[in-house]
């Protein structure tokens, strides 16, 4: 692989790892369900950016774009369903605290 492309790949990868850590930390630490969704979004954004960079440096930009479009569609569907689940939980518990989910029966 070309040295310039390799350098681009490394630089982007480092920032992507940091973005991934930020999202993962948010999911681990927070108790608010909407914040969990935000953390999940950050994780998906890190994956999207990694796909873009990997496809760019390997010369497969067109294939990468097709994959990213699929990923974005799945992301939207997932967030819409998650928002519905979070609202249902809120109406049931009157709280967005994830710890309240332990009180569910079943």
């Amino acid at each position: 692989m070309n040295e310039l492309y390799w350098r681009i790949f490394l630089n982007f990868s480092f920032f992507i790892i940091m973005l991934f850590i930020a999202g993962f930390y948010c999911i681990l630490v927070t108790r608010n369900l909407i914040r969990v969704m935000i953390g999940l979004e950050l994780l998906i954004k890190a994956v999207t950016l990694f796909l873009v960079v990997a496809c760019y440096v390997s010369g497969q930009a067109a294939l990468g774009q097709a994959l990213i479009i699929t990923l974005i569609v799945m992301e939207v569907v997932m967030i819409a369903v998650l928002a519905g689940v979070v609202l249902s939980i809120y109406r049931h518990n009157n709280s967005l605290d994830a710890r309240r989910l332990r009180e569910l029966k079943g």
Binding site: M1, N2, W6, V57, S58, G59, Q60, A61, A62, L63, Q65, A66, L67, I69, T70
Partner: peptide, 19 residues
């Protein structure tokens, strides 16, 4: 070890034919 890239450039072909 990583391959050099020169592949399909038109995203429409990839989306409608390959994927």
């Amino acid at each position: 070890a990583l391959p050099e890239g020169a592949h399909e450039t038109d995203v429409r072909n990839v989306l409608w034919n390959t994927r």
